[in-house]
Design a protein around this nucleic acid. Structure first.
Length: 482
RNA sequence: CGGGAUGUAGCGCAGCCUGGUAGCGCACCUGCUUGGGGUGCAGGUGGUCGCGAGUUCAAAUCUCGCCAUCCCGACCA
């Protein structure tokens, strides 16, 4: 573990706790492992992976609902495949890992470990597509990719990461653009509805767009420290890849045409965004929709000497009832830990609702429900416990998003001058809305002077003079990015 | 690759200036205790002090070299 002092996660470490202890052993269940020369590798422990599985299932459902199917392509990409698209290879070759030896012998051609699969998938598509009747092709892949980054960061920038990448082909430019924007909206709704993480969406500037893309769109979330996180991207690749990989089809009017392609992806970076968005000093706070356990039942043991064997059976009964209602529930019946320890333990793991049941509660036929985010404590009759839990889960999912929304709004500053811009960046960061004249040189200068980059160009155009040059321009969102 | 810093137990650190053969907190193990918010007490396991050389009767400590990592700058989902 080399990134012990990572500031981001330090901020959400419980006060008085040893940061790395919490980070490594308790909550994240994922870490950057360094082994030998490989830095910033991702290790996801079971609890963290369970969160990812829920995210994955939800995203997969959304991808299929929009007409896509899953497939799988090779991990190793021949160098010649990668080199076909000029901008693409220039963009990715600096961060490629190469396999040069196989079976003990030097390979005639080096193989790249996929940094993304456009090259591989387009090479296959070239063989698959002959007619306009073969289009559209709407395929998604769940896979791991490797990018040899110089600077890594837990979850946000790891050498290897898990993601889904969609790769589609369309007959017309309009269809490709529609697909690109459709997937951007899928990402936006996933982020907000499932992760309760509000985002802004829009187009990227040329300097920030994907290597080989015509246009790149993205969703951007705002983290607690005022820095923006690009959480999902959707690219309209134009005909660049079709041309480079020789994908052609015979059109409706018997001409040879090139299809229009798109690609889009979200990764385990979203898991990092989730942790940073909702965490507090006691650890994680998970939105109910992706929480591995939505409820944890903590039985309170009777005092020593007292005889009370009713608590545990009652807990099991409630567990079965909650399960029957489709709620993910865990009964923490460890007799090796005290109740107070269990409270703190599950709070660190971000379980949305805690249910306590002890001898006193049994007498009154009630239980105690505590919400993780607000810590609101309520005594609820056992008969209505299931409904009360469901109600809290629903409320928590909704309120986390609302809280995130107001945080995003409170940390978005509209500026009219360069002085205001610099002041906003120095004081609270967050998103800064201001005019930009469209010049990439100006964009670079702003980055140099303030570390802020243009995160998004909004879909709706609003005229505004450039904050740097004063020339006519349009409104864009600036922020310091991860 | 430029500038700054650090390598001592699984993790976080002290000790180094002023050499004398290694300590604290967390975690882990044992016993008792406690039991509706991280229980308390006592005992215990675990380290060739990053690597190599030099100075010295003696090196975690002083000197030199090497290696590694972290932070700040240029690239990135």
């Amino acid at each position: 573990m080399s990134n012990d002092k990572d500031r981001v996660l330090k901020e959400i470490t419980p006060k008085g706790q040893d940061y790395s202890q919490w980070y490594l052993d308790v909550v994240l269940k994922a870490e950057l492992a360094d082994y030998g020369p490989v830095k910033g590798c991702m290790v996801i422990r079971p609890y963290g992976y369970a969160i990812w599985e829920h995210m994955q299932a939800d995203m997969d459902r959304r991808i299929k609902l929009t007409g896509h199917v899953n497939a799988y392509f090779p991990l190793l990409i021949p160098k010649s495949f990668l080199e076909k698209e000029k901008q693409h290879v220039e963009g990715f070759s600096p961060e490629c890992a190469w396999v040069t030896i196989g079976g003990g012998e030097e390979l005639p051609e080096p193989l790249a470990i996929r940094p993304t699969s456009e090259a591989m998938i387009c090479s296959m598509y070239a063989k698959w597509v002959n007619s306009w009747r073969d289009l559209p092709i709407l395929i998604n892949q769940w896979a791991n990719v490797v990018r040899w980054e110089k600077v890594t960061r837990p979850f946000l920038r790891t050498t290897e990461f898990l993601w889904q990448e969609g790769h589609t082909l369309h007959e017309t430019e309009a269809e490709a653009e529609e697909e690109t924007l459709k997937m951007l909206q899928v990402y936006r709704s996933f982020s907000e509805e499932t992760l309760a993480m509000p985002v802004l969406f829009g187009r990227k500037t040329d300097s920030e767009k994907f290597a080989g893309a015509l246009r790149t769109y993205a969703i951007e979330a705002l983290m607690g420290d005022g820095k923006a996180l690009q959480a999902g991207t959707s690219h309209n690749l134009g005909q660049h890849f079709a041309k480079a990989y020789g994908i052609e089809f015979l059109g409706r009017s018997q001409e040879r045409l090139m299809p229009w392609s798109t690609s889009w992806g979200t990764s385990t970076r979203m898991l990092g965004g989730l942790i940073m968005t909702h965490g507090d000093d006691s650890g994680l706070i998970l939105p109910p929709k992706v929480a591995p356990y939505q409820v944890v039942i903590v039985p309170i043991p009777p005092r020593k000497g007292d005889v009370n064997e009713a608590v545990l059976p009652k807990c099991r009964e409630l567990q079965a009832t909650l399960r029957g209602a489709g709620i993910r529930v865990h009964l923490d019946d460890r007799d090796t830990q005290l109740p107070g320890f269990k409270y703190a333990d599950w709070e660190m793991r971000g379980v949305p609702v805690r249910m306590e049941i002890g001898p006193k509660d049994l007498e009154k036929q009630q239980c105690v429900l505590v919400r993780r985010d607000t810590r609101e404590k309520a005594f609820v009759p056992l008969a209505g416990a299931c409904a009360a839990v469901a109600e809290r889960l629903e409320a928590m999912q909704r309120e986390l998003l609302e809280r995130g929304r107001s945080f995003l709004e409170d940390n978005t500053t509209r500026v009219a001058s360069w002085a205001e811009f610099k002041q906003a960046m120095a004081e609270k960061r967050g998103f800064i809305v201001g005019g930009w004249c469209g010049d990439a040189v100006v964009e670079a200068k702003i980055k140099e002077e303030t570390r802020a980059t243009i995160r998004l160009i909004p879909m709706e155009e609003r005229e505004a003079p450039c904050v740097y040059t004063g020339k006519p321009g349009r409104e864009v969102f600036f922020a310091q990015a991860y």
